[in-house]
């Protein structure tokens, strides 16, 4: 209780990190809902890894062309954002194109993407010792390094993502649930698919930069899977996923602060624990229902 009071009091030292955590906890599940519904969960692993590779590449490029970089400089953050977005959006573009052409099975494409991204991340880091320290922090989840400025950018970008998701929910649902019907209705299916992928890419890029690939993947997947066990409407599914994600991020933050644990892994562990508990509850409920029947 004292931790809760301390965390919520005005002027709390890690206020920006707390807000950043909860924001990512809320927005990543809203995007993850579509990953789960489209049965592309593994894309949630591959894309954050691709984003990390983009960051490593951007830092390496900076060192090669400009010289050693200072990781506290604003240009580094901008560079990292550009690298993350280019790699993530590029990866989405290639995967979406291959999906349309129906080449190889989806899991194989995503698996290869993950392997390539992982290998590239390590190779880029090996060539740039300055980048390595920053990337290690990033992979652990560097939410504690959130500043007022980076938080402002995060709020603006993720806020735009939320508005886009709710504004075009009808279109995103139609192309995700029944692609063919959307074509028959004459909808611009390619545009809506591209918009959805773009929103996913932006969320993942900024999520990885703020919290690391582990946290981003964890919140893309665990809260939507939990929410699906509890809801039966599309809107309530999205809202429940966001609420569960936000609550798990907040709880994880409090636990990490109270017990001096790494922040990102603590948040993901809470989200996964909630999924296990709700999953077990749903299973018991189902068994009881069968017996009663």
């Amino acid at each position: 209780m004292s931790t809760l009071v301390e965390v919520l009091r005005p002027g709390f030292l890690l206020h920006d990190a707390l807000v950043g955590s909860v924001l990512i906890g809320i927005v990543c599940p809203l995007v993850g809902v579509y990953f789960v519904l489209r049965r592309m969960i593994f894309l949630g692993v591959a894309l954050p890894q691709l984003s990390a590779a983009g960051i490593a590449f951007a830092l390496l490029l900076h060192r090669s062309m400009v010289g050693p970089h200072l990781h506290i400089a604003a240009t580094d953050a901008t560079l990292a954002r550009v690298g993350a977005m280019v790699f993530t959006l590029g990866g989405i573009l290639v995967l979406a194109t291959l999906e349309r052409r129906g080449r190889a099975i989806v899991e194989a494409r995503i698996g290869v993407t993950y392997a390539i991204a992982g290998a590239l991340t390590i190779l880029f880091l090996a060539a740039d010792p300055w980048g390595e320290a920053q990337m290690v922090n990033l992979l652990k989840g560097d939410l504690l390094a959130t500043t007022e400025k980076s938080l402002t950018v995060l709020v603006a970008v993720l806020g735009a993502v939320v508005v886009t998701l709710f504004a075009f929910q009808k279109e995103f649902l139609l192309v995700s649930f029944d692609h063919d019907l959307a074509v028959v209705f004459g909808k611009a299916v390619g545009v809506w698919d591209a918009t959805l992928y773009f929103v996913c890419g932006i969320t993942i890029s900024f999520g990885v930069l703020a919290a690391g690939p582990l946290v981003t993947f964890g919140f893309l997947v665990a809260p939507p899977l939990t929410a699906r066990l509890l809801t039966r409407h599309m809107l309530s599914f999205s809202l429940a996923a966001a609420a569960i994600g936000g609550a798990c991020a907040f709880t994880g933050f409090c636990l990490a602060y109270r017990y001096d644990m790494p922040l990102g892994p603590a948040e993901v562990a809470v989200a996964c624990a909630v999924l296990l508990v709700v999953g077990a509850g749903a299973w018991v409920h189902q068994q009881l229902g069968r017996r009663a029947a």
Binding site: L37, F177, D178, R228, T231, R232, F237
Partner: peptide, 10 residues
């Protein structure tokens, strides 16, 4: 069969 019955839709 073209539609996914696991979608949370009424």
């Amino acid at each position: 069969e073209a539609l996914d019955p696991t979608f949370p839709l009424t």
